[in-house]
Amino acid sequence: MLATLPVTAISGKASAARYAARHRNNVIAMVLALGATALGLGWLALILGSLLWQGFSGLSLRVFTQMTPPPGASGGLLNPIIGSLMLTGLAVAIGTPIGILAGTYMAEYGRYDRLTKVVRFINDILLSAPSIVVGLFIYEVMVAPMGHFSGLAGGVALAVLVIPVVVRTTEDMLTLVPNSLREAATSIGLPRSLTIMRISYRAARAGMVTGVLLAVARISGETAPLLFTSLNNQFWSTNLNAPMASLPVVIFQFALSPYKDWQSLAWTGALIITLAVLALSITARSLVAVSKTS
């Protein structure tokens, strides 16, 4: 490695020139690094800025109390907001138990066995798999056999995205629980399952809740898996067996429409989602911070 270093002092003059060149390169690199950071942060500010600007101008009580309007009329986003909440709730209700149980197996029972290794690898793939492919999968196994789009299918599609996030955080957090706690519980005769439920889960609780919050943050803006599972619904509907409106899909539809009212509602919806996601990630982050200090 050292051989590649451009450090060979020959004569006084040459080494002074070389020193100047190295110094110059260093300054250039530092300026570039500073510039890159400014670019990254500037971009965040730019996106959030235009989102706030466009979103707030359309924000009013109407948005939370009225249904999505036909083109040209005034209206709100009540049905997609409720739809999104229901779909997210359904996804968490299905995905969290499976994710926690799978993570429990990987960290508690089979920490070193083959199944765990395979599941960890597959789970990591699922974690970053394209969400539109998940939509196609649920379309094939639920929508096509049932013959119609439904909120249920949308919820299951989102659950498929929740599971890998929860598995990952549960496994990570349970692995961090000191073994001496488990040994202490076992030594007083606590069965394995109760050791896990009463000792490990309790010790890892903050981290596991964080995982669920991160999963909710991840799915609340997901559009692709909902496009052909829960589809969309212009009217008030809480029927999980029928197509259901959701914020991201409504944003998609309204933003690409030629109508000014719809576009403005799309911006407002985008603002609501972003604020919700940011609030969730900040809560998750502070939970981790609290559990680290205590």
């Binding site: 942060l41 933003a255 985008a270």
Partner: peptide, 19 residues
């Protein structure tokens, strides 16, 4: 801040990109 940028849903980038 950089990690928050990662958390912004892709549809937000889409609508921002379009308009």
């Amino acid at each position: 801040a950089i990690e928050l940028l990662a958390g912004i849903p892709s549809i937000i980038y889409g609508i921002w990109g379009l308009f």
